[in-house]
C-alpha cells in the first residue's frame, strides 16, 4: 500500500481518540518561543475538540460541519465551515477523510524499529505551514510536528492516549458569555 493508504488506515483506526498534549514552538534560530498544554478529543468523521489550557485558554471545536475557535481572554469567537479551515488547522486534517488528505498533501513515509513517520507537504499555495509530520507508535498517534514559512517549528507530543473514550454529550459544542464578539464567517460564504 502506498503511504497515503497506510496513513488513512491509521487515521481511520483513530475513529475515537483522546489524549493530552504538550506543545513547544521554536523559532528559526532554535530558541523556544512558546510552550502550551491541552487536550485533544477526536471522533471521526470530522468532529474534534482541541482545548489549549496554557498559557492562555483556547477552545477549537468542530461538529463535523463547522469549526468554532473561542478565545475567552480575547472575548472572541470565530466560526468557519470545516473545509474552509483545512489549510489552517492540522486538527482538521486528523479528522478528515483520506481523499481530503491526498487532495491537499503529498505524502511520504519512513519507518524505524520504534515508529512510523509520515511527512505531509501541502500542495496548495495558501497553506500556512510548509511541512507536517505525524509519528505513530503501535498504530497510535504520538507526535505531530509543524514547520512554517518563517522557519518556526512546533512539536506537539500526545500522552495518555485512549481509543474509543466515553464522551460527554456536549463534547463537540462550546458556550460563551454574550459579551463575546462572534465572527460567523460562514455567512460570508453565502449559505
Amino acid at each position: 500500500a502506498d503511504s497515503g493508504d497506510r496513513l488513512s488506515a491509521l487515521l481511520e483506526g483513530m475513529n475515537a481518540y483522546s489524549a493530552n498534549f504538550e506543545q513547544t514552538t521554536h523559532d528559526a534560530q532554535g530558541t523556544v518561543k512558546q510552550r502550551g498544554k491541552g487536550q485533544f478529543i477526536l471522533e471521526q468523521p470530522g468532529r474534534f475538540r482541541w482545548v489549549v489550557k496554557e498559557p492562555f485558554p483556547q477552545t477549537i471545536v468542530s461538529d463535523g460541519e463547522s469549526v468554532w475557535v473561542y478565545d475567552p481572554d480575547l472575548e472572541q469567537v470565530s466560526i468557519d465551515y470545516l473545509d474552509e479551515r483545512a489549510a489552517k488547522t492540522p486538527a482538521v486534517l486528523l479528522s478528515g477523510s483520506s481523499e481530503e488528505i491526498r487532495k491537499h498533501y503529498r505524502i511520504s513515509d519512513s519507518r524505524d524499529t520504534l515508529k512510523e513517520m509520515f511527512i505531509l507537504n501541502p500542495k496548495d499555495e495558501g497553506s500556512l505551514f510548509t511541512m507536517l509530520v505525524l509519528n505513530f507508535v503501535d498504530d497510535q498517534l504520538v507526535e505531530m510536528q509543524i514547520e512554517d514559512s518563517l522557519g518556526q517549528f512546533t512539536k506537539i507530543v500526545f500522552t495518555g492516549v485512549s481509543l474509543n473514550p466515553s464522551l460527554a454529550k456536549d463534547t463537540f459544542s462550546v458556550s460563551f458569555p454574550d459579551y463575546v464578539d462572534v465572527l460567523d464567517n460562514r455567512k460570508a460564504v453565502g449559505q
Binding site: K33, Q34, F129, I146, L150, Q152, T154
Partner: peptide, 13 residues
C-alpha cells in the same frame, strides 16, 4: 513584533 498562530505557524515578523 512577532505574531504567530496558536499552533506556532501562520505568523509574521
Amino acid at each position: 513584533i512577532n505574531i504567530r498562530g496558536t499552533l506556532g505557524f501562520g505568523g509574521l515578523d
